[in-house]
Amino acid sequence: MKTANLFWSENLRFLRNRRQLSQNQLAEDLKISRAKLNAHENGLSRNPPLEDLIRFADYFKMSLDTLLRINLSKLGELKVRELEAGNDVYLTGRQIRVLATTVDKQNNENVELVPIKAKAGYLAGYNDPEFISKLPRFSIPDLPPGKTYRLFPIKGESMLPVPEDSIIIASYVQDILAIRKDTPCIVVVKGQDIAFKLVDVSGIQTTGKMWLKSLNVRFTPYEVDVSDVLEVWQFYGYLSKTIPEEINNAEIVSALNHLQTGMQELLRRGQ
C-alpha cells in the first residue's frame, strides 16, 4: 500500500510563520517545551501523542486531516484565510462545505425562497439541510442548467433602479475570486445581514476584504472580511410587480427579459 504524503511538520512551521511567532512564543501558547515544538516542526517526532495533535488542531482551528494531509503552503491565500478563520470548507472530511438543497420528485433541484422573515434564521441555518427543507420552494422554467439557484427578497433603496420588494434570482458562487468587478450579488455575511450589492473582490488576496457597493450612489460602499462571508449568490434576474422608470445596468436589463413567464404566479405562491 502506498504511504500517503503527510505535511504535519511543514504545516506547523508554515502556520507559525504566518502568525509571525517565534518557536518560544508558540511553545508558550501551547504550554509545551520549545524542544518538543522544534521536534514537531522538523519531523523528529515520529509518533506524536494524540494529545499533541489535538492541541495543535485546536490552536490553529483546523481539522487533523487538514494539518496532516494538505500542504497548506500550496493553497491560495483566500483558502488559507478561510481555514485560519475556522472554516475548513475546501477539504474532504467532516468539515466539508456541502451546499444544502432540496429536490423535486424527478430529482431536479428546487429553487428555494428565503423570505424576509427567515433572513435571521438563514444566517444560522444556511448550511442545515433541515432548515433549507422548510423554506418555500419553486420550479422556475428556463434557468440555465448546471447551477444552483435561490430566491432572495430585498428591502430598501440601495440598489435602485431595482425596485424595493423585488425578489432576486441568484446562482450559487463556488469560487468568489472568479467574480468580475462590480457584479451584482447576494452576499450572506456572518453576524450581519443578507445584502444585495455590487461585489469587488480585487483586494481579497492582499487585504482579506471584499468591497460591497450599491447601485444607488447615495449609499456609501463598505468592506467586509472575507472570513465572515458565508455565501455569495450571483445575480441572474429579479421578479417585481413594479417596472423601473429607468434602468442603467445592462445586466439587469438583459436578465429581466427572461423572467416574465410565470412571474405573478411565483409572487403569489411566495407570499
Rank of each mutant, 00 (worst) to 15 (best):
K105P: 08
L67G: 04
H40K: 01
L12D: 04
Q95K: 14
V80G: 07
L26G: 03
G93V: 07
F7P: 03
G43H: 04
F56P: 00
L53G: 01
H40Y: 12
S9Q: 09
D104Y: 09
T102M: 10
L44M: 08
E82I: 04
S45P: 00
R16G: 07
K79V: 12
L50Q: 08
R16Q: 10
F60T: 01
L12G: 03
L12H: 05
R19G: 00
W8I: 12
T101E: 13
L15C: 06
N87H: 14
D88L: 10
L21M: 14
I70T: 09
N17A: 13
Q106K: 15
N42C: 02
N107P: 07
D88F: 09
K79C: 11
E84W: 04
N5L: 13
R81C: 04
Q25P: 00
I32E: 01
A57Q: 03
S22K: 08
L26H: 03
E41C: 02
N108K: 14
N38A: 11
L53C: 09
F56K: 02
W8G: 04
L26C: 05
G86T: 04
E77G: 07
L64Y: 01
F14N: 03
F14E: 06
N24D: 11
V80H: 06
N24E: 12
K36L: 11
R34P: 00
L67C: 10
K105N: 15
L6D: 04
N71G: 06
S22C: 06
P49Q: 13
R16Y: 09
V80C: 12
L99Q: 13
F56S: 03
K61P: 00
D88T: 03
D88W: 09
D88G: 07
A35D: 08
S45F: 01
A85Q: 05
N87G: 04
R16P: 08
L99F: 14
W8D: 03
Q95V: 00
N87I: 11
A4R: 12
N71K: 14
V103M: 14
D104H: 07
L75P: 09
M62K: 04
N71D: 15
I32K: 00
E109R: 15
V89N: 13
R34I: 06
S45Y: 05
R46S: 10
L91V: 15
A35I: 10
A85N: 07
E51H: 11
R94N: 13
R18K: 14
L64R: 01
S9I: 01
Q20T: 06
L30M: 07
T101Y: 15
I96Q: 15
S33F: 00
K79L: 13
L72N: 05
L37A: 00
F56M: 12
S22M: 07
L72K: 03
Y59H: 13
E77C: 12
V80S: 07
L72Q: 05
G76V: 08
V89H: 14
R94Y: 13
R16I: 06
S63H: 07
L99C: 11
H40S: 06
D58T: 09
N42Q: 08
N108E: 15
L67V: 06
D52P: 00
F60I: 02
E77Q: 14
F7R: 02
K31Y: 01
I54M: 12
L72H: 05
R94H: 14
N24P: 00
L6V: 11
N24S: 12
G86M: 08
N107Q: 15
L83R: 01
D29R: 13
L44Q: 12
E51C: 07
D88M: 09
D104L: 10
